[in-house]
Simulated scan of single mutants.
Amino acid sequence: MNTEPPQGDDLQQMLVTMKHNVLARAELDRPAPGRRGHRAGIVIGIIAVLGIGVGSGAVALGMVPQPFTAAPAPSPTVTEPTQTPTKSSAPVVNEPTTTPTPTPTRKPFALDDPSTWTISGNEVGPVAVGGDDDAESDDLKSAYRLLPSPESSCTLPGTWARDGSATIHVASEDGRVVGVEVQPPGDTTPDSLVPGPTTAAGIGVGSTFEDLRAAYPDLVQSSDLTGPWSMWETDVADGTLRFQIGNDGDHVNSVWVSANWNRPTAKCDI
């Protein structure tokens, strides 16, 4: 079956035939005189429609099939994806920085209270090894008194005493301090800690040998003697500490701070 619409001469022939058919039908159906004008108007309207141009008349009468034209497809709606903001990185958390508190090597001290003084590897309280003898010794005057040291006595020059406290001897050469020794106030070995300077670990004149070994596990013997009058030493951050054990073999009798191993000796001890 041919579904193509008529074109050219075929279309003209079809329109002429349709026009003749319409006129013939109108003649057969001619109405009574009273309705003539009305029917004539209809016929004229039909002929006028048929008189429209070839393309337009065929389409207007609906007689010529035409290709189906689909409605334009709706434009797709583009939905922008919702962007969820992402963090470029995890939040930076500042961890608290903890700085370890260093163990103090010396405690605060009062110049007039020797029990607050610290014995270190190069100082005893305010007196520093290597300093000017007069300047360093002058700091002792607020708490100590200088003992006389005649040739006939066993008192070494530079010995400072204080009632109820350990004695301090400042050894000097050529006007410079070469060592400082902390000693008991009398001639006998104390059987308990004597008020006065102590090391940062709390060891001083009168401390037990057991406490000394516990405070300084690396303690080494530095003399041929064992027990009474033996010498022991340990290295600390700023020098060397040397301890002499008393005649009971159980308590510290003196603490010697110096770069020299030999302690000063009074003539009466020779």
Rank of each mutant, 00 (worst) to 15 (best):
P5D: 04
Q7Y: 09
P72N: 09
T116L: 05
F209K: 06
S149Y: 08
D248F: 06
V255C: 11
P108V: 09
V54L: 15
L212C: 01
S88Y: 14
R39Q: 13
Q221P: 08
M18V: 13
G125P: 06
S207C: 08
A237E: 12
G158L: 01
R35G: 11
A135W: 05
F68H: 15
T155A: 00
S137L: 01
S56D: 15
P114T: 03
M231E: 15
G239K: 01
N2T: 11
W256E: 02
K141T: 10
W160Q: 09
V257R: 02
L156T: 02
L219N: 10
H38W: 07
V220T: 14
G196T: 03
P76Y: 07
D163F: 07
T116H: 00
P65V: 02
G55N: 15
P91D: 04
P148F: 10
D224Q: 12
P91G: 06
V93S: 01
D191P: 07
V220G: 10
I270H: 14
P81W: 04
Q7F: 13
I168P: 02
G206N: 00
G175P: 04
A70W: 13
D238A: 02
A201L: 05
G125L: 02
E173L: 05
I245C: 01
P195E: 08
H169I: 08
G45T: 10
V64T: 04
V78W: 13
E181T: 15
E136V: 01
Q183F: 09
R106H: 15
R176F: 14
M1Q: 13
T103F: 03
V236N: 03
L212M: 05
S153N: 02
G51W: 10
E233V: 03
S115N: 08
E151P: 07
G204R: 00
R145H: 12
F68M: 13
P184T: 04
Q66Y: 14
R176E: 14
K87M: 15
E173M: 04
P65A: 11
L140C: 02
V93P: 08
G186K: 06
G175I: 03
I270R: 12
V220D: 15
T188P: 02
P108F: 09
G8Y: 08
I270V: 14
P217G: 03
T103Y: 07
E173C: 03
S56I: 15
P197E: 06
N260F: 06
N253G: 01
P100R: 11
L193F: 04
A26V: 09
D224F: 10
N260K: 11
S75Y: 10
T98D: 12
D10I: 06
R36V: 06
V182L: 10
Q12T: 11
A48L: 02
G34F: 13
Q221W: 08
L15A: 06
I52N: 10
D174Q: 08
T98P: 04
A171I: 00
T265Q: 07
